[in-house]
């Protein structure tokens, strides 16, 4: 398909004239947007399903692509037809995130000037050391999983969404690290900066999340990985973060609440493309069956993780059930195939 001559005059030997856009996009009636001009069909290594890389068919990476991408049960006749509903391109991403980061800088400076951290209740400061700052490990695992989606995506429009997702996760790894350093100054002795790894590896509140992310990191089927990460795991993480934000506001820590709110804005953008992608990707029975199976396998892990973490938060026990209910609703919305035409 990709190597076929473009333009109807090609077969007849007539001379091809200039077009108004790439020949690849010329067939569509609409004038292409900037998003389409720079995002569609920029990935070439899915043209040849049997030998994706221009190396001997048997080299490990050719086998890897065949096995984990091309033979994944998530199938579509034309992955290049997928479009990000936000039509996000690089320049709009960095411009938008620059503004968001300026907002976050403002928050941090303002609350710092107010002596916010020193005025936290000691018990809440301890909670932050236990249940907030170890978050960077989880977010970094998500960053790595999103990076895997980039390398394995069957089309550029999909890979691009994953690039932004990877970058967003790193954004919050960085901000959590920043807060860790600030809190370590205000609260020496609570294990800020020195205790996160042990808590991530040992604290019971984190273990189900850790299991979820480690199993995801070891999941190489591209379709399963992208579905489990985006439909199950990250919504489960967000459910925990929402509960953390609720606790923070209740405990007199508006800064953590506002930071989490800013973080969840990135999640909302992710959810928009994930929803569009899941509708797009499930237009054939095989894909729907695979998705159903993957959800059945991963959803219990996600729920257990959000519950263990949420219930451990101050005031979380009373709120966790409702939050998990909302999470299920979101996961169902994200996972839904496009409704069949009546």
């Amino acid at each position: 398909m990709d190597n076929a001559p473009t333009g109807s005059d090609a077969r007849t030997g007539a001379t091809l004239g200039p077009l108004k856009t790439w020949s690849y996009l010329a067939a569509q009636k609409r004038r292409p947007s900037e998003y389409e001009i720079v995002s569609v069909h920029t990935l070439y290594n899915n043209d040849n399903a049997q030998v994706p890389l221009e190396l001997a068919a048997g080299v490990p990476m050719n086998r890897w692509y065949r096995r984990y991408r091309n033979e994944s049960r998530l199938r579509h006749a034309d992955w290049n037809a997928f479009r990000d509903p936000d039509a996000r391109v690089y320049r709009s991403y960095v411009a938008a995130q620059d503004k968001e980061e300026i907002y976050v800088d403002g928050l941090l400076d303002q609350y710092n000037a107010l002596g916010h951290d020193a005025r936290l209740a000691p018990a809440w400061a301890e909670t932050l050391a236990r249940l907030y700052t170890p978050l960077r490990y989880l977010l970094h695992a998500a960053q790595m999983c999103a990076a895997y989606s980039v390398t394995m995506a069957p089309s550029s429009t999909l890979a691009n969404c994953a690039v932004f997702e990877m970058a967003d996760q790193f954004r919050w790894v960085s901000r959590v690290a920043y807060r860790t350093a600030e809190l370590a100054k205000a609260w020496p002795g609570l294990g800020f900066r020195t205790g996160e790894r042990r808590r991530w590896e040992e604290d019971p509140a984190w273990q189900p999340y850790r299991m979820l992310m480690e199993k995801l990191l070891a999941t190489y089927d591209w379709g399963e990985s992208v579905v489990a990460l985006n439909v199950v795991a990250l919504p489960a993480v967000d459910a925990g973060l929402r509960l953390l934000a609720d606790s923070a506001l209740e405990q007199g820590d508006p800064l953590t609440g506002f930071l989490l709110e800013a973080q969840l804005k990135d999640s909302a953008r992710r959810n928009r493309w994930v929803r569009a992608f899941m509708q797009f990707a499930q237009d054939q029975d095989g894909s729907r069956d695979a998705v159903a199976e993957w959800l059945a396998k991963w959803q219990p892990l996600g729920e257990a993780a959000a519950a263990a973490y949420g219930e451990d938060l101050p005031g979380g026990a009373g709120r966790a059930a409702t939050a998990i209910q909302a999470m299920r609703g979101l996961q169902d919305t994200l996972a839904a195939a496009r409704a069949a035409a009546p």
Partner: peptide
């Protein structure tokens, strides 16, 4: 804080 953001290796248990 930079070093904290790159202190993200841990010892996995479930894989």
């Amino acid at each position: 804080w930079y070093d904290i953001a790159r202190d993200t290796n841990w010892t996995p248990r479930y894989a």
